[in-house]
């Protein structure tokens, strides 16, 4: 299922922060993991991911470090900062409230994003 880019723009950062709360990852690893864990809902190409990562870094929510990846070549690894952790906690609350609201009015019938937001 292809998600509208507008929706993805709001949910993407929260999904990436959530993913990084489990430990540092490099770019392609984030793309693959998101796709696998969201059952293909978060199919994020370079065009979305890298600008998003640069934004998160600009806001101080993640930091990057260059170090060798699994194939021995340098990869940029991203990890959450303290600010990123706080932001993730806020995002979780807001998404939970939003889903609850959407459910209450009948837009959703299940807690569709719960898998990601509850960690």
């Amino acid at each position: 299922m292809k998600i509208e880019s507008e929706l993805m723009r709001g949910a993407g950062p929260a999904a990436v922060l959530q993913l990084l709360s489990g430990g540092e990852m490099y770019g392609y690893q984030i793309v693959e993991t998101l796709s696998q864990r969201s059952n293909g809902i978060f199919e994020m190409g370079q065009s979305t991911l890298y600008p998003m990562l640069y934004n998160l870094e600009a806001k101080g929510l993640v930091v990057s470090t260059n170090k060798p990846g699994p194939n021995g070549k340098d990869r940029r690894y991203y990890r959450l900062t303290t600010a990123g952790k706080k932001r993730l906690a806020q995002d979780r609350e807001q998404w939970a409230a939003l889903i609850q609201g959407l459910s209450a009015i009948g837009v959703t019938r299940t807690r569709g994003f719960g898998f990601a937001l509850e960690g």
């Binding site: 392609y28 370079q46 890298y50 194939n71 070549k73 340098d74 990869r75």
Partner: peptide
């Protein structure tokens, strides 16, 4: 940016 994108294609191909 060039380094990130190169890495991305390399990793994608490797996968």
């Amino acid at each position: 940016v060039a380094s990130d994108l190169v890495a991305h294609f390399e990793d994608g191909n490797a996968s």
